[in-house]
Design a protein around this nucleic acid. Structure first.
Length: 423
DNA sequence: TCTGGGGTCCTAGGACCC
DNA sequence: TCTGGGGTCCTAGGACCC
């Protein structure tokens, strides 16, 4: 069985590196980039990390440190980062025929067929540095999870100088017992704790865990991680970006919202922004959800939250309709009696997205965006039996001809004028 | 006082159907 | 009315990721 090498390349402290591309005075000094609301640090230079500034540290808690050490502080500039990210990917494309963009600063790369993988990775690294000005690190292995681990090791140990090829089995055998299990891709805080409970603390121990036990302790996801650590790829390189399924606009409020009008304003703004995003991406949405939450950091107070959803019609992607639907949801979620002591987070989420050029002819399509196949089956039925049949159908039916009435979903019957009817 | 935002995937369990 | 297998659909919530 031949093992196919897969690489993951990531940019070092990406947002900070991006800022440094355009401002040379930032070299070798502590720099941080803040989250959307300027609330907390989401990227730190090595110098900032050395000062003890952690990922997600709220700015107001590190203010003293920032001032004492002259840390340079930036609001995030996603337009800039997206542009640099694209240029990095373009450079990767010169070094491999297959690239999967995983996040704004990470790509999986097909490294099959290169005689000297490490030299190839180093050449790629030099090219990105020269053309874009961003430092990258590369991990190579026979599965994505192992490649991620290699990348992590290359990141932490200067001795590897930014490139680590774990296809070398002796090296892998020596390194994996030294990798904490919590550093493995897919193992978060909860799973790490559970694993420690059964005596598994390192990547090597996780690799050797019985599959059945993994499945039981976690889910199929953990089982896959174990297989991937064994060098058996379960996650393939996905070159085509999948259609995104949902989008959200959420914000923390700077002051608690204690009355309905304030919340109303926030929801209105978020819904407006969501409509803009929707049009920008050329999508329509099938479902809208409004959420709001009390301050999760105040564990001394009772927590309260609400979420309300509504189905949308094809026309609802227009701003006014979205805003209107969002307001209705907010109204029904707002507590009738007891006055809450204030909400600090509000958001609007849109789900069941589909491209607007496929803007459906019926309500049905919008509600069931995954039903393209079913719709074509319906068309076939109609062609065959004439345009007088009302066909109600559920998704997931094995044989497209075996369509049946589904009284469980009365909403399908509400406004299907465009669907042909027979009884 | 201030403590991010935007995603995906998986499971459990109830309701319902034939 | 009871029994039962074999399904689907939907939602809430957990967990993880960048």
């Amino acid at each position: 069985m031949s093992r196919q090498p897969i690489a993951i390349s990531d940019s070092k402290n990406f947002y900070v590196s991006a800022e440094r591309v355009f401002d040379t005075s930032l070299a070798n000094v502590p720099v941080i980039v803040l989250s959307n609301n300027d609330g907390c640090a989401v990227a730190r230079s090595d110098e900032a990390k050395a000062l003890g500034i952690k990922m997600g540290d709220p700015l107001h808690l590190i203010r003293d440190k920032v001032e004492a050490h002259g840390v340079r502080v930036f609001s995030s500039n996603y337009t800039l980062y997206a542009d640099l990210s694209r240029r990095v990917v373009d450079t990767y494309a010169d070094f491999t025929p297959h690239v999967e963009i995983y996040s704004i600063d990470e790509c999986f790369l097909d490294f099959m067929g290169f005689r000297d993988r490490e030299a190839h990775a180093r050449a790629m690294r030099a090219a990105v540095r020269r053309r874009v000005g961003i430092p990258i690190r590369v991990g190579i292995a026979s599965s994505k999870t192992l490649a991620k681990a290699a990348n992590e090791l290359a990141k932490k140990n200067p001795v590897f100088d930014g490139v680590l090829d774990l296809m070398d089995e002796d090296l892998a055998r020596w390194l994996l017992p030294r990798v904490p299990v919590g550093d493995i891709w897919g193992i978060g805080r909860r799973t790490e704790a559970k694993l420690k409970g059964v005596g598994i603390a390192t990547a090597a121990e996780l690799r050797d865990m019985p599959l059945r036990q993994a499945r039981k302790l976690g889910t199929v996801v953990l089982e896959r991680t174990v297989l991937e650590l064994q060098g058996e790829p379960c996650l393939s390189l996905e070159e085509v970006e999948p259609q995104r399924k949902g989008m959200a606009v959420t914000r923390s409020a700077s002051a608690p919202m204690t009355d309905f009008d304030t919340l109303f304003q926030a929801i209105t703004a978020h819904a407006t922004r969501a409509a803009e995003k929707l049009r920008q991406h050329g999508l329509v949405a099938g479902t809208l959800t409004v959420i709001f939450h009390t301050n999760k950091h105040r564990q001394d107070r009772p927590q309260w939250s609400a979420a309300r959803s509504t189905k949308l019609t094809p026309m609802s992607s227009d701003t006014f309709d979205l805003v209107d639907a969002a307001r209705r949801c907010a109204r029904s979620g707002w507590p009738k009696d007891g006055k809450p002591y204030g909400f600090t987070k509000a958001g609007v989420m849109l789900d069941d997205l589909l491209p607007s050029e496929d803007r459906p002819r019926t309500l049905f399509d919008v509600m069931r965006p995954k039903s393209a196949q079913l719709m074509s089956a319906l068309d076939q039925v109609n062609d065959r039996f004439g345009k007088k049949t009302l066909v109600l159908a559920s998704e997931g039916m094995k044989r497209p001809w075996a369509l049946r009435a589904d009284h469980r979903s009365p909403r399908y019957t509400t406004r299907i004028e465009d669907l042909p009817v027979v009884r």
